[in-house]
Each structure stands twice: as structure tokens, then as C-alpha cells.
Design a protein around this nucleic acid. Structure first.
Lengths: 333, 333
DNA sequence: GTGAAAGCGCTAACAG
DNA sequence: CTGTTAGCGCTTTCAC
């Protein structure tokens, strides 16, 4: 079960271990003939580097930790693919972990990543995270971290997000121009930037167009299908169904669809619906969901680019980068 | 940027490094008072183990590599969640990689995992894999590997799959009893167990019920939406549309739906469709797709249980385990 | 109960 | 161009 090491190659060729390392790493001081011999022997013996040994001396693992709140979800799985590609292109590997929207797990994962000595961390924080403890650990350890998609209102790290505020504003404005007058807003967490900014964009658009804001029609506190389901039923019960319901995520919209079906409410005739995220499912819904699409690949690319820059230059200034989403109009409005 | 080490704790408390390790690892020979002191200091200094150092001496990383052909796909992302949970429960971490159905990347990933010294590998091989080279490397290195979902016809490793043959047989038999007589089969790769077994189940069911098998209506060579799309068009062009089309994956069925819409073919009136996999999307299609659901969580649990058993007992015999899928009848038949 | 010494596989600094 | 030495952080004998 012991794997072949450089020492073994050295012994076989009767040269020093040092020469072997250097040859394998294409050190310019080693003759081509020696390199060939060493690489030949390596091949023959089935040698594969041991990154563990290498990391220990280099103090780098060429590894980036990724923490996402969930994975069985088209936004995050697509994001993961993008992150992989962006990282690999730069010679880094990704070690993803899933917090399942649970801040305790999240904290454990951060510690685990520090234990594994990842070179940096990209994370979308969980819906339930309010404590800053884990982030202070990261800071104390001087590990670069970049918030992706969801950030905390704690600006010690770089952030890559969508322009939630502006795009929500634009979407609402668009529907106002289409003639909608009575609006509702469902979802979002007051401590997550994405939730707050979407809600703010919503409020500002209504205000700028002199439309009244009914606080009973703004319900926050969740991002899930369940949340959407329960709250549409609630709105219906209270008889305060708006003409158009802006959902902070497509998940919430899914719940709304389900509740609407159960209650016999017609979309978009009784209530029009807009989601956020453009999940793959959105286009298959009946009616297809109007939603806001996020530039997933760009988010991924930008996050890795930023993180790698910070890894390679620890004194780099933190940056905040908002990428543009776009409204995808389908039959639900 | 240097992290606090055990040495630092030792220095601070003016005791030996050895005592520190032992105290942190709850060695029974260390007095409770010392343990408390050490742990206290560790906490205070913000000490976090360095798994790199630990792995180097232990020759274990408590880490399992997972290779899947794709991730932005509900089957695989759900599987990943299951794998995470099953592994964490046993104290292992997962390092997932995505081959994107590309056998070259797959081979690179296998090498990378060996370099990272994962303790074992779980993998669903890529659609395009035909060479055995990488698996022989794994074998030569004596690293336990378990095939999950898709296996090669190369039985040197344990396999956890769905009972593709039986469940397909049963599904076809069910539709025969419903009155269907003319069948087609779309998708699958001749070198992947899943494709072969589904096709075999299909053939056997027809044969056992004395129905003729039209080879023009059996088209294999792909698992993708694109494949389904192109081949429905082809079947239509050749005027050999069957009454019922069994698709080797839901992806293929998605392509079929798309082509049907384009061609004005009605599902299930003109052609009934069955898929395989029960993607989340399946129930949202119009009409909802009849498909075969796989026991994803059980697959994950079983794969990790098997792998960990092999890691902990290298002489354990290889096992082949087929879990039961189930037919989910919806409106497409 | 505690500590000294040795080594896991690798690389970097320095000498020749 | 090649080799010697030393050390990354940790654990495991084995001695005290």
C-alpha cells in the first residue's frame, strides 16, 4: 500500500533525491539527459507526486474552498461548474462544501477548510447566518475570502454579487409601464444583501412612480418554496392578493405556483408573478415564469479572479463588484 | 501569514511538543490538568490543526474523491448531497470533481486525486470513457474505488447501480399490459452498464411478450437532450414513429419533447414517452413525464458504506449491489 | 505523566 | 550540473 516516492526513483538511478525533485520540476540547472532518465524512471515505476509533502513545504495547497448553501439547485450547480473552470484555468483545485443553509455547518466547514489549508475561500453564506465568529477566524488567519452572490453586511472581504437593487428596480418599472399598479413582494432575509437589495429596489421603484406601498403585501423572512407556498395562502386568506407579486427567488415563485394551483388562482390573470434567478425549471412552468437571470458564469469567473489575485497578493485591496442581471419576460406577467 | 502551530502552544506553556499533540488528541497518558491547559491555550491562540502535517505522518487524509460526469443536473447534485452526508457521518470529507463527460479530464482527475492522496474514490464514469488506463493506475496504487450509477464492464471494483435491466423490463411490461404494441428505444452507450442493461431489459420484455423488435426503432449512442431531439426528428422523417418511446434518460426525453413540439407531434397521443431518472423537471413538463425514479439517497449511502469498508479493510471482497428503481406513472403514457 | 528523537515526502538554500 | 543539509507540522516509538 506504500506508494512510490522520489526517494525510490533516486535509489533506482543511484542519484540524489534532490536531483530527482529538480528534474521532475524542470529545474533549469538539471541536464536534459538526467531529466529524461528521471522522468522515464518515474513513468516506469508509476510515480505520482504526493501533494501532501509538497504542500507542507510550500505552505500552499493550490486549492480553493467553496462553500455554497445548497447544491441540488440549478443556480448553485451551474455556479459550481463555472467556479471549477475558472479555478482550473489558473492551476487551482476546488474543494466544495455545502452548508445546507445551516450556519453551524457553515462554521464547521470554514474550520475544516482552514485545517485543510486551502489557499482561499469563496462562499455564498447560508440563509441563517448572522454570527460573524467564523469570519473573524478567517480574518485572523489571514486567509483571503470572497463573498459570492450573497454577502454579509460586513465589509472586510471582497464581494461579487448581482446588481440586485438596480435590476429589481428596472423589472418593477417595466411592469409599471405595462400597466400594473398594485404590487406585492415575497421573500428575502433582512441580513442578506441579496434580500435587502431586492426589497429596496422594489420599494424605490414604487416610490419613484408614486405608487403606494402596502406593508401587508411585503412579506420577508425566507427564500424557500415552502415560504412562497405558505405566504400566498396567507395573502389570499387576508384578501390582499396584489396584481403582481415579485418573488425574491424562483424557489419562492415555485411555492406561489403550487399554492395558486391549490387555491384555483390563475397566473397571470389573478396574480402575475416574477421570480429571481432563472432556474432551469422556470421556463418549463405553466405558465413559464418571468424572472431575472443572473450572469452565473461571469459571477464565477469574477469571484475566482478576485480570490486568486488576493491569494497572490495579500495586500490587495478588497473590491465590491456588482454584475448585471437581466429580466427574462415570459408568460407569467 | 504563518498559522499557529503546536510548537507555539508548547513554547507558551513551556512544555514539550509531544505533550501538546498528545493532550490535543486526548491521549490517556496525559493528565487532565495538562489537557485543560493545552486546550485552553489552543483556543486562546486560535490554533487549528494542520491536516497536511497530520496526513503526512498518518498516511491517511480522511478524504474521499468523487468524480461525476456532470453536476448541473438534479440527479447528480442530489447524489452529491447524499454522498456528503454519508461520508461526513463516517468522519470523511468529500472532494468532488466533475468530468463533464470527458474521459481525458476524467483521467486527469483520477491522477490528481491520487496526488492529493484521497483515501478512496467513488465515481460515475463519463459517457465517453472506453480506456481502462486510469483504472489500472488506481488498481496499481491499491486505492479502493467504487463505481456508482455507471460502471464499466471491468469487474475489478465494487459497483453500486440501479437494477436497470429489471426495472426497464417491468416498465415495458406494464405498458404492454396497458395495450401498447409498438415500441421504440432511444439512447444509451454500448460501453456503459446502464445503457446496455436498459436496452436489454427493453428487448427481453418485448421478446417475452412475443412482440416484434424493430431495429430501426432502437437508436443508441447518446444520453443527451440533443441526442433525443435529433433522433425523434429522424424517426419522424423515416415515418417510423413508435406508439411508445422508451428513453434511456430523462435528458433524452427532454429532447424528444422539444422535437415533438417543433414537429407538432402530440404526447402521448401520437407518441407516448417514458424517461429514466426522474429529474426534478420531469413533473413540470407538459404533459408530466412518466419515468423511472432511482433511489438516489440509498445509492449514495451504499456507495460510501462500501468504499469506507474497503478503505478500512483493504482485503474486503469486491461487491456488486443493485438497488431498486421504481416506475412513476404520469401523463406521458 | 512527560519528553527526546526520528521520520512521513517534499523542496529550498547553499556548497561544491 | 549535482549533492548535502535542514525543515515544513505532525505523530509515534521508546526512554525516563
Amino acid at each position: 500500500m506504500r506508494r512510490v516516492s522520489q526517494a525510490e526513483i533516486a535509489e533506482k538511478l543511484d542519484i540524489s533525491r534532490t536531483t530527482v525533485t529538480k528534474a521532475l520540476n524542470d529545474d533549469p540547472n538539471i541536464s536534459d539527459r538526467t531529466k529524461e532518465k528521471v522522468k522515464g524512471a518515474a513513468q516506469e515505476l508509476g510515480y505520482i507526486v504526493n501533494n501532501i509533502g509538497r504542500s507542507l513545504v510550500n505552505n500552499r495547497t493550490m486549492t480553493i474552498g467553496l462553500i455554497v448553501p445548497k447544491i441540488a439547485h440549478s443556480f448553485y450547480s451551474t455556479l459550481l461548474e463555472g467556479i471549477y473552470n475558472a479555478a482550473n484555468m489558473r492551476g487551482y483545485d476546488i474543494i466544495p462544501m455545502v452548508s445546507f443553509e445551516d450556519c453551524e455547518r457553515e462554521e464547521k466547514m470554514i474550520r475544516k477548510m482552514l485545517a485543510m489549508h486551502v489557499d482561499g475561500i469563496v462562499m455564498g453564506i447560508s440563509e441563517t447566518t448572522t454570527s460573524l465568529d467564523s469570519f473573524q477566524i478567517v480574518e485572523k488567519n489571514n486567509i483571503p475570502l470572497v463573498f459570492l452572490d450573497r454577502a454579509l453586511p460586513y465589509h472586510h472581504f471582497s464581494e461579487i454579487t448581482t446588481n440586485d437593487f438596480e435590476i429589481t428596480y428596472n423589472a418593477i418599472e417595466f411592469t409599471i409601464q405595462k400597466g400594473y399598479k398594485n404590487f406585492g413582494f415575497l421573500g428575502g432575509q433582512p441580513h442578506l444583501s441579496s434580500g435587502v437589495n431586492r426589497e429596496m429596489g422594489y420599494r424605490k421603484a414604487l416610490k419613484d412612480h408614486n405608487l403606494s406601498i402596502d406593508e401587508n403585501q411585503i412579506i420577508t423572512g425566507g427564500y424557500s418554496k415552502q415560504f412562497g407556498y405558505e405566504n400566498l395562502i396567507e395573502l389570499h386568506k387576508l384578501n390582499s392578493l396584489p396584481e403582481l407579486l415579485f418573488c425574491a427567488t424562483d424557489e419562492v415563485a415555485l411555492g406561489v405556483y403550487k399554492a395558486a394551483k391549490k387555491l384555483g388562482i390563475k397566473i397571470p390573470d389573478d396574480v402575475a408573478v416574477i421570480g429571481f434567478g432563472d432556474l432551469e425549471i422556470a421556463r418549463y412552468l405553466n405558465p413559464p415564469l418571468t424572472t431575472i437571470s443572473m450572469p452565473i458564469d461571469k459571477l464565477a469567473e469574477e469571484a475566482i479572479a478576485t480570490l486568486v489575485a488576493e491569494i497572490e497578493n495579500p495586500n490587495r485591496e478588497k473590491t465590491v463588484n456588482k454584475l448585471e442581471g437581466s429580466l427574462i419576460v415570459r408568460k407569467s406577467i
